[in-house]
Design a protein around this nucleic acid. Structure first.
Length: 606
RNA sequence: GCACCCGUAGCUCAGCUGGAUAGAGCACUCGCCUUCUAAGCGAAUGGUCGCAGGUUCGAAUCCUGCCGGGUGCGCCA
């Protein structure tokens, strides 16, 4: 992505400055020496373990310019870098300069910064771009995610897209990018016709009072089954005729099926909204497929009239074989458009309405070819913004026995997973709080329900975004109901523990602290990890990946749990108690902030 | 046939813009609640990084070929 990382980490920045100065001091006479602060900054990283140091600088990239071995460079720079005010000690270990940072610096610049929230308000990217008048402004991105079809059911497969897109939007916004979140539901097409066909001619059931969207999804599945059964029989032609008739009414926007479409669509939309609300997702704009349908056809016809498209075998499209992308069909022989046609129009609409610098599509990897074609067509017809369109692909969610398909009906409806999980959580963990047992504080039923909801959300969302986008997720209900180990609830538990701890010991930001007292390895490890939070998010935004943040939070959680087990807080001497409490609180703040980037709520007790 | 993705511990996965001894979780085995939430902590076990070459001071990481699995490639979306 276009954004450049800034030297936002004050500790890294000070070290980088110090290293640059040292290089100039030591090698002032050398030729070809042209090293910049940002370069050195980007070469700094956490040391592999605390015995070696806190932050490491590998001298490899300097070796070529200086024509010296990296270990020699490290040894020569060592003494010149030691006077950096934040540094306790520097060691040259082979090709590396390893820095030990003063506890005072870590305490003030990391712990105190997290507790005052200054850490979360740091600008972590160079976000400015220039507008037409040369005026600087922040980058504007658009992320399109969640493209569910109406008249079908939302299942766990849709959750990956939803959780990934939501997390990316939140991460981009955290990073200061002006990001709009948009969705593109499919409310037209043959799937709708099939559903309405079954509903009108074959359904015997009463329309339920509630959950009409899910019920409608079953109509669609039944329609497919019946159409499949009647294939090859004398009904086949009749069915095809009916479907054509329905599609025509939908296209003409009049007739009984059009009215039926409006009504049934609202049932599906209700289900979508319920799901989005559950997922804590909000969209700035809903782009309906029906809304770009007609304009897309008009536009493509214009392109054809301008001679930018060709007719082949009766269909109109663009020959992209020079780009090894085959033929991109845009108008079928029957004169109607396709998916690609609408996406060409939608891209133009997005840039026109929002004037974004980057247009990202979160869509599964089966559409990779489709988007390459669409973007190439846009480029070839002279749409300059085509270069700013980006397909973010991810792998599918499958069931142990293969791919999910609402056509076949072998799916796990999302809300089924949610209720199953909430039930398990209550039974295994929360019901004990309802009793008058003196071991526990008593909770209200409402608190239990709300907490179960948060934890189920944490488990599902974390499960969806913790693996690499390119890796398939095999959904196994049994596995997902286990809530120990690397899971959302593990992270939420850390937050709940910290909250309860701070509550019990009366944490206040103004408590007198002495950072020098944090001598235990688990304390240092936690501080160093906390220092790396913003960098982790920045990298995630650049790579459009969520797993980095997940790994970070899990490691942070583990470090906290070790610290919690090893370092008594309540029983510690007053000054140490306050200092440790500040460290714990800072961890809680980073955990809460990090979870919120993933769209996950952090319960205060569980 | 062509294109893209995946192949790391028994299972699920990190690590991949080359760099310090290949890491987690689950499962299995041991230990830790009269002490701040045991959804936790500690310890032990477990790997020819698919195979073969190449580039490099250095390769799980980059390049080439092969093997195995998945997906896509004109009238669906």
């Amino acid at each position: 992505m276009k954004v450049k990382p800034l030297p936002f980490n004050p500790i890294f920045k000070a070290l980088a400055q110090s290293i640059v100065a040292a290089i100039h001091e030591v090698y002032s006479n050398e030729e070809g020496l042209d090293i910049e602060l940002s370069q050195v900054y980007s070469m700094l990283g956490l040391a592999p373990n605390l015995k070696m140091g806190h932050i490491a600088f590998g001298c490899f990239p300097l070796a070529k310019a200086l024509r010296k071995g990296p270990p020699q460079i490290a040894a020569q720079l060592k003494d010149h870098v030691a006077n950096c005010p934040l540094v306790e000690e520097v060691q040259a270990q082979g090709p590396y300069l390893n820095f030990f940072i003063k506890k005072e610096s870590l305490g003030e610049l990391v712990i105190a910064a997290a507790n005052s929230h200054a850490l979360f308000e740091t600008e972590i990217f160079d976000l400015t771009t220039q507008d037409e008048k040369g005026k600087k402004r922040n980058e504007k991105w658009m992320i399109e995610y969640s493209q569910p079809n109406t008249h079908k059911i939302l299942h766990v497969g849709h959750m990956r897209n939803l959780c990934l897109g939501n997390a990316l939007v939140r991460m981009c916004r955290y990073a200061g990018i002006d990001t709009s979140a948009v969705t593109y539901p499919g409310d037209v097409g043959t799937h709708v016709a099939k559903c309405l066909w079954y509903y009108k001619f074959h359904n015997q059931e009463e329309v339920p009072k509630e959950d009409k969207g899910a019920w409608l999804g079953q109509m669609y599945t039944k329609a497919n089954t019946l159409l499949e059964e009647q294939r090859g029989t004398d009904k086949e032609a009749e069915n095809r005729e009916s479907l054509t008739h329905i599609l025509k009414e939908l296209h003409d926007q009049k007739g009984e099926f059009y009215d039926l479409w409006l009504e049934t669509k609202s049932w599906s939309v209700e289900l979508m909204k319920e799901t989005y609300s559950w997922a804590d997702v909000e969209f700035d704009r809903w782009f309906w497929e029906s809304e770009v349908d007609a304009p897309s056809l008009t536009y493509v016809k214009e392109l054809y009239d301008q001679g930018k498209l060709i007719k082949d075998e009766g269909a109109i499209g663009m020959d992209l074989s020079d780009d090894k992308l085959g033929f991109c069909m845009l108008i079928k022989t029957d004169g109607t458009g396709l998916y690609a046609t609408k996406d060409v129009e939608l891209a133009r609409k997005k840039f026109k309405e929002y004037g974004v610098d980057k247009n990202i599509y979160v869509v599964d990897n089966r559409q990779a070819h489709h988007f390459k074609q669409v973007f190439k067509v846009l480029e070839k017809v002279g749409f300059e913004k085509a270069k700013d369109c980006h397909h973010l692909q991810y792998e599918m969610v499958e069931l142990p026995d293969g791919a999910m398909s609402s056509r076949k009906g072998n799916i796990v409806p999302l809300m089924e997973l949610v209720s199953e999980m909430e039930k398990t959580i209550k039974e295994n963990y929360l019901e004990k709080y309802l009793s008058d047992d003196s071991d526990h504080e008593k909770w209200s039923q409402e608190e239990v329900d709300r907490t179960a909801r948060m934890i189920a959300g944490g488990a599902i969302k974390y499960g969806m975004v913790r693996v690499d986008n390119n890796r398939k997720i095999v959904f196994d209900m049994k596995e997902w109901l286990k809530l120990d180990g690397e899971t959302g609830p593990y992270l939420q538990y850390v937050h709940a523990r910290i909250h309860s701890l701070c509550n019990k010991l009366g944490y206040r930001e103004e408590m007198p602290v002495n950072w020098e007292l944090l001598k235990e390895e688990s304390e240092t490890a936690l501080m160093v990890k906390l220092m790396d939070f913003n960098q982790t998010v920045a990298t995630g935004v650049q790579k459009l990946q969520t797993l980095g943040v997940c790994n970070y939070l899990f490691e942070l959680g583990k470090l906290f749990n070790s610290f919690y087990a090893e370092c008594p807080i309540g029983k510690a001497e007053e000054e140490l108690k306050h200092t440790r409490l500040a460290l714990a609180h800072a961890t809680g703040e980073v955990m809460r902030e990090g979870l919120s980037l993933l769209g996950i709520e952090a319960p205060t007790k569980m």
